[in-house]
Computed example of a mutant assay.
Amino acid sequence: MSLNLHGVIPPLVTPFDSDEHVDVELLRAEVRHHLDVGVPGLCVTGSTGDGQMLSAEASVAVARAAVEETAGAVPVVAGIVRDSTAEVIRYGLALKETGVDALQVTPVHYLFQPDEATTVDYYRRIAEATGLPIVVYNVIPYALIPAPTVLRVLNEIPSVVAVKQSGGNIHQLADLLHADPAGGTVLTAVDDLLYPAYLLGAKGAISATLTVAPELAVRQWDAVQAGDHQTALAIHNKLLPVWRSIDGPNMTVRIKAALRLQGRDGGLGASPLTPVSDAEREAIATALTAAGVTVV
């Protein structure tokens, strides 16, 4: 099973209204914004989209809106952040009905971890049950899938088409890129090291910074592909402070604040995320302005 995931694939926020229901129209507007920028793919209901907070019904509403709005122009990847194989399959089958192109699946993220054989079996069962391409989302700090296990999953399960490597920083990503798995694509989600990840061979990225500043992110990717490393490095130095300003325990509401500062509307955050402070908002505005992103 193949799916061409490459380049800048922003993970969208999930806009909530004052009752903490999904605001589908705000989501559609964000989809249109990113399509206008020219991204080659989109991701919904992942970490940036508060996927761990979403019911299956809410996840389906988000995914359906994204699929309808893209109308096949780019692939849509839908995230699942659950704690059992059965729950992931339940979400996956519901999301499949929306027409998403792939599922982005974390390992189980509760305290107790499966061993290597069980992890491989976990992704195999999900792939077989859903019949969709799978992206391994390797992000959970205390359930990080070691690089050799990721390689087994990519090479042994045809439906697993990519890994989004987030946890383990550049070190685990470097090991995966060095191995150059034939069975799938390696994407980066290490926001402060996007540029070096591209140089090491990452085929693209799915990470929060791309959502906040997609124009800069696309320009950086294009510069790397063209061998214009002076431009790519200059953009890295603009994006790094943006990432530092949104990184934190309340990251998704900081991202929404960053969108609002640009005249975009990512909706409200969901409880119990800590609201953005005035100091945090000022730091975000300062970083965006320094990066040349228009603040309104």
Rank of each mutant, 00 (worst) to 15 (best):
residue 135 V to N: 10
residue 104 Q to F: 14
residue 118 T to D: 15
residue 98 T to V: 07
residue 68 E to K: 00
residue 186 V to P: 02
residue 156 E to Y: 12
residue 158 P to F: 03
residue 171 H to Y: 15
residue 116 E to P: 14
residue 133 P to W: 05
residue 155 N to L: 05
residue 98 T to L: 09
residue 142 Y to N: 14
residue 141 P to Q: 08
residue 147 A to L: 04
residue 91 Y to K: 08
residue 157 I to A: 04
residue 106 T to R: 03
residue 155 N to Q: 09
residue 147 A to S: 13
residue 160 V to Q: 07
residue 109 H to I: 14
residue 119 T to N: 03
residue 87 E to Q: 08
residue 163 V to G: 02
residue 107 P to G: 07
residue 181 P to V: 04
residue 178 H to P: 13
residue 107 P to D: 06
residue 102 A to E: 07
residue 181 P to E: 08
residue 131 G to P: 01
residue 111 L to I: 13
residue 124 R to G: 10
residue 143 A to L: 06
residue 151 L to Y: 02
residue 150 V to G: 00
residue 103 L to W: 06
residue 180 D to P: 11
residue 83 D to P: 01
residue 153 V to K: 00
residue 140 I to G: 08
residue 101 D to V: 11
residue 153 V to P: 04
residue 161 V to W: 00
residue 81 V to C: 12
residue 162 A to R: 03
residue 180 D to M: 13
residue 154 L to G: 05
residue 152 R to D: 03
residue 85 T to G: 03
residue 156 E to M: 08
residue 122 Y to K: 00
residue 107 P to K: 02
residue 74 V to G: 07
residue 136 V to P: 01
residue 162 A to L: 03
residue 70 T to W: 01
residue 108 V to K: 07
residue 104 Q to K: 08
residue 159 S to H: 08
residue 90 R to W: 01
residue 71 A to N: 11
residue 119 T to K: 02
residue 180 D to Y: 12
residue 167 G to Q: 04
residue 140 I to Y: 07
residue 116 E to G: 15
residue 127 A to M: 07
residue 171 H to P: 15
residue 92 G to P: 05
residue 153 V to Y: 06
residue 76 V to M: 00
residue 114 P to C: 10
residue 181 P to G: 12
residue 101 D to Y: 09
residue 185 T to D: 10
residue 182 A to V: 15
residue 80 I to T: 06
residue 86 A to H: 09
residue 96 K to V: 14
residue 95 L to H: 03
residue 152 R to V: 02
residue 79 G to L: 00
residue 96 K to N: 13
residue 92 G to H: 09
residue 114 P to V: 04
residue 177 L to I: 08
residue 163 V to L: 08
residue 108 V to W: 03
residue 129 A to T: 07
residue 68 E to L: 09
residue 188 T to C: 12
residue 90 R to Y: 05
residue 179 A to S: 14
residue 142 Y to L: 15
residue 145 I to T: 10
residue 183 G to Y: 06
residue 135 V to A: 03
residue 150 V to E: 00
residue 82 R to Q: 04
residue 145 I to G: 01
residue 68 E to G: 11
residue 71 A to G: 11
residue 166 S to V: 14
residue 157 I to P: 09
residue 84 S to A: 12
residue 170 I to M: 15
residue 145 I to D: 02
residue 73 A to P: 12
residue 89 I to M: 03
residue 98 T to K: 09
residue 152 R to W: 01
residue 92 G to T: 02
residue 84 S to T: 05
residue 112 F to L: 08
residue 119 T to G: 06
residue 169 N to Y: 14
residue 156 E to N: 12
residue 140 I to Q: 10
residue 100 V to R: 05
residue 125 R to Q: 15
residue 112 F to I: 10
residue 122 Y to R: 00
